[in-house]
């Protein structure tokens, strides 16, 4: 080693060198610098518009002139919650979101479980590709494709007809509520497309949570005398729950807010998203539209609160 080497190196030249030294001495300053723009964005653009929206819901439309009356009132909420058609929309949307979420979780679980615990190497890559691929193609294209699949003269019916199983579909479609003239104009059709479109959002967090689940916990459970079913309910399920909750937050809130799928595949009965679109747009009733958008926010808040109470986040 050369004895000429100094123990302390000279400062690096230029302003970037000086800045590096300053940041090293005051790490909080760097953090502040990095966080300010996103916080400003979040605070002003996002929260600001959210509060502006909330504020809107406390105004009401003047029923004589159709103009917005800017005095704070709860009249719009009363209209929202006492008009049967509006309640229908809320109940319909929440039920749909709940069904979509439950069913997504049900079919996402085995897929996620396989991917997290068994798939290795190229199979894992294939899994990610398979799950993500639908996310890469256009949302609208997918929905239109589903419309064609489910149409009365569509692929699905054609296949059933070839299999001589058309009577089965007919019987199903004659059921009240979930049936209809064809799958593409029934709640079932809307449901299927919702599940298809949001499924990746359930699989990925579920898979992440299952991946974090150490194998030796499963071995420990079996070792202590738990049959596979017991292991599932006592270990896998509670530890996968945060992932399922995270996924369900996606599927649930995305279904609550979507207004395109029920527009293209469905019976034209409105969902909350469509109602918002229609009220703020066509009707110019921004207060009611705002009140409608508050509904999913309240539901999601309640949902998160329940999930927290149930201990879904304890293992985080």
């Amino acid at each position: 080693m050369s004895s000429a080497a100094a123990a302390i190196l000279p400062p690096r030249g230029g302003p970037s060198g000086a800045a590096s030294d300053a940041f090293w001495r005051h790490p909080k300053f760097l953090l502040l610098l990095l966080l300010t723009p996103p916080l400003l964005w979040l605070g002003i653009i996002y929260l600001g518009s959210l509060f502006a929206l909330l504020a809107q819901s406390f105004f009401a439309i003047d029923h004589y002139t159709g103009m917005i009356d800017y005095t704070p009132t709860l009249r719009t909420y009363r209209e929202l919650l006492t008009t049967p058609a509006n309640l229908d929309i809320i109940v319909r949307t929440v039920l749909m979101a709940a069904c979509v979420t439950l069913f997504s979780a049900l079919i996402a679980f085995p897929i996620a479980y396989y991917a997290a615990r068994y798939a290795r190497g190229k199979w894992k890559a294939l899994f990610y590709l398979g799950v993500m691929l639908p996310l890469w193609s256009s949302y609208l294209v997918k929905i239109y494709a589903w419309k064609l699949i489910l149409a009365k003269e569509g692929i699905f019916n054609w296949v059933l007809a070839k299999l001589h199983l058309y009577w089965l579909l007919d019987a199903y479609l004659s059921l009240p509520v979930i049936g209809g003239n064809s799958l593409s104009v029934s709640y079932t059709g809307t449901f299927l497309v919702f599940v298809y479109v949001w499924l990746p959002y359930m699989i990925l967090p579920l898979q992440a949570s299952l991946e974090r689940l150490p194998n030796n916990l499963l071995e420990a459970s079996a070792d202590l005398g738990a049959a596979p079913r017991q292991t599932f309910w006592s270990v896998i399920f509670p530890l996968a729950l945060p992932g399922a909750i995270a996924g369900s937050i996606f599927t649930f809130s995305l279904t609550l807010g979507d207004y395109i799928i029920p527009q293209i595949v469905g019976s034209s009965r409105l969902f909350i998203g469509q109602a918002v679109y229609m009220q703020q747009g066509t009707a110019g009733n921004i207060p009611l539209a705002a009140a409608f958008t508050v509904v999913p926010m309240v539901i999601m808040g309640f949902y998160l609160w329940m999930a927290k109470r149930m201990g879904a986040f304890d293992a985080l």
């Binding site: 150490p214 916990l217 420990a220 079996a222 202590l224 005398g225 049959a227 006592s234 509670p238 293992a315």
Partner: peptide
């Protein structure tokens, strides 16, 4: 299968169930 063997294991990194209390862990079997 393991759950039918009257044999128990102390795992290298203990493999305690993170979602259960100490008492529940012990009572698990």
């Amino acid at each position: 299968p393991p759950y039918r063997r009257n044999v128990n294991t102390v795992f290298q990194d203990y493999a305690l169930f993170p979602h259960l209390s100490v008492l529940e862990n012990v009572a698990y079997g």
